[in-house]
Design a protein around this nucleic acid. Structure first.
Lengths: 167, 167
DNA sequence: ACAAGATGGTTTGCGATCAAACTATACCGC
DNA sequence: GCGGTATAGTTTGATCGCAAACCATCTTGT
């Protein structure tokens, strides 16, 4: 095979059988020691495991966090909820639309600031959250096992430091 | 489309000024000790800091990881790239379309397996990656500082363990 | 009190991502 | 070989997320 050059996207050039790392042994290079890279892989693995545990039909981690924050801070505003859960306000709106449609939360206008809503759980929301919390607790116990009891506190502190320093 | 203009709340109930956590002191409840929750916040903070550092116009962490993996494993397939970077193959395709359009990578059919492409960096891709690597290294040095030199190895190991155990 | 700016919420536009359906090719058992 | 199954890549459809534009309301400076 002659090695052709050229810049056509998707032009099917043939390559002789060169090195081809083929096997699963992919080298990570500098990535291997980057905190950011491993942070992403770990977070996504955790996310998927959680979603799988509660079932595809159910509520995802993001919704769970929002419901918990609402229960812990009844009447909080959407903006406060967004800050606490690390989501943009334009993400909070449709998420709450969904939770409201499902009858899990209420939005009430407040006299104090008529721009904002006071968000609260409905009894139904409390019930669903209680169920979700069981799944979440089981999920986090699994994470605890992986991390190890003796390392958890330090690990959490490092994660908090990263979020705080870069947030 | 939840078509609802700012004027009409869905259930326009007025709430007298009840507790209203108002201030920024939002209680996290059980979330405070969940590894998954802090993992997500830390990852997103890191992601945003990286994107900001390389500039909005430039390539995001995901593209950087892909370019690095291609450089470290020239000729690897899209499937292998997806596995290594933790992305679905249907995510890899448009990402490589973009990188190819920018002239940073090439896709060549191989004789060995005519279903797959051998992906490689162009000289232009090498140059862009070199520049990106400088930013990434600076970013990770910042993370190193936050985590602390003496904690980094252990921290990385825990992240790897989580990704491996739940992946 | 009033104008200027800040803030809460919604909408729109865009990119990233996955899952599932599909095509083409490779591999395996017989 | 042949058929069945597995794999590489693409396409489509859906969800999630952010940023920016926008309106309504609150706050602040003077």
């Amino acid at each position: 095979m002659t090695s052709r050059r050229g810049g056509e996207p998707h032009s099917p050039r043939m390559a002789a059988d060169v090195e081809e790392p083929a096997g699963e042994a992919v080298r990570l290079g500098p990535l291997a020691d980057y905190i950011g890279y491993h942070l992403r892989l770990a977070q996504e693995a955790s996310f998927r495991a959680f979603a799988q545990r509660v079932g595809d039909e159910d509520l995802k981690p993001q919704r769970f966090a929002m419901l918990t924050l609402i229960r812990e801070n009844p009447g909080l505003t959407q903006a406060a909820l967004g800050r606490a859960s690390g989501r943009d306000k334009s993400t909070v709106t449709p998420a709450l639309d969904d939770l409201e449609r499902r009858g899990l939360i209420t939005r009430e206008r407040t006299a104090r600031d008529r721009r904002s809503y006071a968000v609260r759980l409905t009894p139904e929301g409390e019930a669903v959250l209680a169920e979700l919390t069981r799944h979440a607790a089981a999920h986090d116990r699994a994470l605890d096992e992986i991390v190890g009891r003796e390392n958890k506190a330090e690990f959490l502190n490092l994660l908090r430091r990263i979020a705080a320093a870069l947030g």
